[in-house]
């Protein structure tokens, strides 16, 4: 198998394709107490993150929006991973995810399923697709009024 084919398989892992086709937690969350919108002006990806935060713990989280396979799967897997996590854990995962997709290495033992995004680091122009939803989550946590962007 040539290098580029294996890179492509690394990017479009089965798990990613599955979450792209059947995104989890893909809905509005009426009981959310935090919400933010994210936008990637480069490709037009739009995402809304809904968050129910109580006592600094993510009680529930969901998303809506349109985007590529990478951004949709990133959102789906993020929501799956973060349910029940406290803010410190969320911050650690955000940092770990960022390091993972930008190829910086770092601590990965806590990453679990998010490791399927390791292939993104081979595709620098796609890093923003993977991180958009995480930036949007940050905005929701900070209750920023401005839409999050990847720029």
């Amino acid at each position: 198998m040539s290098d580029e084919v294996s890179h492509l398989n690394d990017l479009y892992e089965e798990v990613i394709l599955d979450h792209c086709k059947n995104p989890r937690n893909f809905k509005a969350l009426p009981e959310a107490n935090r919400k933010a919108e994210g936008y990637n002006p480069l490709c037009g990806d739009k995402v809304t993150v809904y968050l129910k935060l109580e006592d600094e713990v993510v009680q529930d989280i969901s998303f809506e929006g349109i985007g590529c396979a990478i951004s949709t799967a990133a959102a789906s897997l993020m929501t799956e991973t973060l349910k029940g996590k406290n803010l410190t854990e969320v911050e650690t995962l955000f940092q770990g995810f960022h390091d993972l997709v930008t190829g910086k290495g770092g601590e990965t033992s806590q990453m679990g399923k998010l490791m399927v995004f390791h292939g993104v680091s081979e595709f620098p122009v796609r890093v923003k697709c993977a991180t958009l939803v995480w930036h949007t989550l940050q905005a929701a946590l900070q209750q920023t009024q401005e839409p999050a962007t990847t720029e």
């Binding site: 084919v5 890179h7 490709c43 990478i70």
Partner: peptide
């Protein structure tokens, strides 16, 4: 159908094909 243009662009790029994707 079922594939975002950005993913089309990345896969075509791996084949040496340069197309524009986006709005």
């Amino acid at each position: 159908e079922g594939v975002h243009a950005h993913d089309v662009g990345t896969i075509l790029d791996q084949e040496g094909i340069a197309v524009r994707t986006g709005h």
